[in-house]
């Protein structure tokens, strides 16, 4: 089993594709930095989705062609982006009104840890020598926006990221709706964590062994 471990489950692109399938036509979506950014590449054809970046742009387009970068047109990761026809710019208080005031529909984020109650830790490992930096992470999960987490199922060293209680400082309590990992799609419900879909060749027991929190199967 150990020899085949690396090959099991979905690729990062497939994880992004799974999350993209759960973004309905007409949605306003905020994508976090890193793996969540890939989701934009997989939105099914025929669906029109508007991307929000919290530094002040609704209607974010793809990265510009080389030589067309504008340092005053960037995303929340401070990378150069483009604005689609129909885009608009706004200041930070308006941008977070869209977030905190539940005008954005879906936010896709990365995670360090997720608890079985849907608590999310994704801004700090709490290491004493680290410079604390939070950005907009806590605001994005504070409203009633649907929170999708896209993340490897375990850490690089094989430790479970889906745990009974987060040990890292929290970003928000009871905020995650769905988790997309390389092994499974997991819904966070009032009755616990439920596996909605298993990656090909992956069994329920295989996922449970790599998860500290208790998993359930829809009957």
């Amino acid at each position: 089993m150990v020899g085949n471990e690396e090959k099991k489950g979905w690729s990062i692109g497939e994880m992004a594709q799974k999350a993209a399938l759960d973004i309905l036509d007409g949605s306003y979506v905020n994508l976090g930095i890193g793996m969540p950014e890939l989701v934009a590449d997989y939105v099914p054809e025929g669906r029109e989705v508007i991307y929000h970046t919290e530094n002040g742009l609704l209607g974010m387009g793809p990265v510009p062609e080389p030589g067309k970068e504008d340092p005053e047109l960037i995303n929340a990761g401070k990378k150069c982006v483009t604005a689609i026809p129909g885009a608009c710019f706004f200041h930070h208080a308006d941008s977070f009104t869209m977030i905190r005031g539940n005008h954005i529909d879906i936010c896709v984020l990365g995670a360090l840890q997720i608890s079985e109650e849907g608590d999310l830790a994704n801004w700090s490992t709490g290491a004493p020598d680290a410079i604390p930096a939070v950005g907009g992470a806590m605001d994005l999960v504070a409203g009633d926006i649907k929170i999708y987490v896209i993340s490897r199922h375990t850490t690089k060293t094989g430790e479970p990221k889906i745990v009974r209680e987060c040990t890292y400082p929290l970003t928000g309590k009871n905020v995650v709706n769905t988790i997309y990992t390389d092994l499974a799609i997991i819904d966070v419900t009032d009755k616990g964590l439920f596996i909605r879909e298993l990656a090909p060749g992956v069994t329920f027991d295989y996922v449970q062994e790599r998860t500290e929190a208790k998993l359930n199967q829809y009957s």
């Binding site: 919290e54 930070h92 208080a93 941008s95 604390p132 806590m138 605001d139 504070a142």
Partner: peptide, 13 residues
Amino acid sequence: LELVPQGTLAERI
């Protein structure tokens, strides 16, 4: 350092 969530920073201003 006073660390403030970005949206809270904006709203405080």
